[in-house]
Structures are given as structure tokens and as C-alpha cells.
Amino acid sequence: MTIISLQQLSKTYRVPEREAGLKASVVSLFKRKYKEVKAVEQISFEIKSGEVVGFLGPNGAGKTTTLKMLSGLLHPSSGAVQVLGHTPSKREPAFLKQIALVMGNRNQLNWDIPALDSFKLNQAIFDVPAEQYDKTIKELIELMELGDLVKKPVRNLSLGERMKMEFVGALIHRPRVLFLDEPTIGLDVTMQRRLRDFVADYNKRTDATILLTSHYMADVEALCKRVIVIHHGKLLYDGDLSGLVTRFSASKTIGVTLSQPAGQSLASYGEVIAQADDKFTLRVAKSDAPKVAARLLTDLQVADLTMEDPPIEDVIAQVFAQGKESA
């Protein structure tokens, strides 16, 4: 069942523009110039119920603008978008009651009072029955290991604790669709892992549909089978995470440990990207990888040899670089 559907969705901002300096400033008083910035350009995709999709792109790619259109904050300039059968920009209560938007580093809870009071407010606003609220809140507090922290004013909590509270606040009404925009930004590794586990668990238990943007590939690898990549507002890739590597990575990484010193440079086999004692890491063209491996085994005294795809971060960087060249 399709939960999110975008067709040729575009968003263009009209922003004032002027040169630096006093003269330009005076001129702009009488004659204002505007520039059209295409933040999102005719992107289309569909997301089915229960999917967790990574939405990737460099800064300014249009990810957050898309999430804001999906959650009803922004009106699209053109194209069509449907979430749970609703047009988000109409912001109908029936739609808003089924979604949540969590933005990393953005505090939606009341700063000066305990989070528990903000949760109670969300219960009233989202019309959550008392019994369901009690059950959900207990469950979420346990899962997030929040304990008595919910009784402390939000301003006294650490960034990680606040982020956990944000998640609890956003999930009280058990949204069917969750938009997560950089939810782990600024958090330490342990906290990132805990939030990732939490999101995975929430998806498993509720079959919620989740669209996630993150610059931490660990988030994407742990949670998303499918990724959508955009750059300069245009869709570059939509498919399996593993397919992204196959499609965009033109190289393989060969790790080779020698039992005897080579006595020569391994540069003739490929690009040496790391070396420590007798352990070498080579980057070779994907099509040449089997031949290079065979040559290494034949020519040298090899103790160990591994062949891997490059790290996902490298592949993504390559995708963005390609997108930049073609833009």
C-alpha cells in the first residue's frame, strides 16, 4: 500500500538579490531584483507502508524542503504530493494526527518545564485516549531509558536527553508516518546507536513508514534498505542501498597482507590508498579487480587478501561529485 506519493514535485523560492555596497543598497530601494532558486525540481517517488527510506543528499540538496512539503509546512510550487491519502499542504487535522516531523537540534518541547507536562499537552492536542497515552508513555520512557528525567525541566537536560524527549513527544500519538530530519545530529556515538535502535524498533512494532535524512551513513546503513538520493533538487538515485554501491562505485578495495616484504612498490597493481608495514590497501577499477587479485597471488607471497566495495561514505561522496559535475 502506497503511503507517500510524489509526482513531479517542485519548489521554487523567490529570493531578493543585490550586489554588496552602499550604491547597490540604494538602488535596491527603488528597483529590487529577485532570483528564482529551484530547491526541488520535479522529483517523483513512492514509499510503501512500513518502509524505512534514507533520503540522502549534500547540504542544500533539497531534502529538508521535500520533508517540509511532505509534512504540510510548505506549499509545493508545482507537482502533486499525497501522504496517507491527504494533500499535506491542506494540513487537515486527520492528516496531522497521523504524522510526526522530528528535526535534530530543534526543540519543540517547552524549555522551562518538565517534558512530562509537554507530553500531556500533546496528548490533549493529538486527542490520545488516556489509557493509550499511559501505555505509550510508559513504553517510550522504558525504551529510551528516560526514568525520572521526564520530570526535570527540559533546559536542564543534555542534548542527547533532549533529543530522546523530542522523540517521545513526537510519538505519543503513534504516528503512521515519521519524517526524521537529521535526528542524530550532534549526538555522541552511543546516543546515535540508541536512537537508531529505537527507530528500528518503532518501525518493527508499529509498521510505521519512515523517511530519514542523515549525514551519518551509519544511520542509513542500520535502518534503510532503500535510499533516495537527490542533488541540486533533482533525483539522482532511488533503489537499494547495495544497488547504490554497485551502480555508482567504479572501484573495489583490495586489502593485501604479505608474508614476505615485496621489495617493490605495489603501485603497478593499483592506487595504494593505505600502507602499514606489510599491509597494503589498493583501489582498483571494478572490472580489473579479479585480474589484479590473481596477479597479486601469483607475483607475491600473500598471507591474506580481501576484496571489498568501498565504504558507503565514499560512494555517496562520489554520487554527489557526479551530480555536481552533471548539474
Binding site: 517540509k68 509534512s71 504540510g72 509546512l73 494540513r91 487535522p93 486527520a94 496531522l96 494526527k97 504524522i99 510526526a100 516531523l101 528535526m103 530543534r106 519543540q108 500533546n122 492536542i125 493529538f126 486527542d127
Partner: peptide
């Protein structure tokens, strides 16, 4: 305002 606009109120 983003937070306020994503609430059904």
C-alpha cells in the same frame, strides 16, 4: 512555527 504547524490545532 514549524512545530506549531504540524499539530492539529
Amino acid at each position: 512555527l514549524n512545530g506549531m504547524l504540524t499539530r492539529p490545532f
